[in-house]
């Protein structure tokens, strides 16, 4: 029951946070885990990135392009930043604005130690970028950078079927 509630809260955040322009939502590892347990017809691409991560920055335009191309499909891109909490205004917000990224803007609230990394995915070494792609049938973790064509092909052949 607790989990269902958590998922509902999280879904509300996803739906309504769009009104809160420029506001960055802190999300805990537990909330991320609950989110990845959602099983419906939508394909979710949960992507961990940061403005300090060079390969992540390179990949963001491709991700946004794929989101636009798949906007009529049951596909949802959820970006979760691992920027430092004291650099939200100095680094993250300017980057979001410059790239005209749409809210909600999530920032992962890192916990002490390392167990929280396992909570999100036990295969995650902690390097960025990392992605979780999931829907009703699949759940896959990727600790790597994708090229545009590689990710588009993967999504449209394995996850989003015509």
């Amino acid at each position: 029951m607790k989990r269902v509630l958590l998922v509902l809260i999280l879904l509300n955040l996803v739906i309504f946070s769009g009104f809160a322009e420029n506001s960055v939502i802190l999300i805990s590892p537990d909330e991320v885990k609950a989110f990845t347990e959602i099983r419906n017809d939508t394909v979710y691409l949960l992507h961990f990135w940061a403005t300090w991560c060079a390969p992540c920055i390179k990949e963001i335009p491709d991700l946004l392009k794929i989101e636009e191309q798949l906007k009529d499909k049951k596909f949802k891109l959820v970006l979760i930043s691992l920027d430092f909490e004291n650099q939200i205004q100095s680094k993250l917000v300017p980057f979001l604005a410059k790239n005209e990224m749409k809210p909600p803007y999530y920032l992962l609230k890192q916990e002490r130690g390392y167990e929280w990394i396992n909570k999100i995915n036990s295969n995650w070494s902690g390097a960025l970028p990392a992605s979780i792609i999931f829907n009703r049938k699949n759940y896959d973790f990727y600790e790597k950078s994708f090229s545009y064509s590689e990710l588009y092909r993967l999504l449209t052949t394995k996850y989003i079927l015509p």
Partner: peptide, 10 residues
């Protein structure tokens, strides 16, 4: 064995 957030190897 422990883990941490870090930068990927380039």
């Amino acid at each position: 064995f422990t883990k941490a957030i870090g930068c990927s190897i380039k």
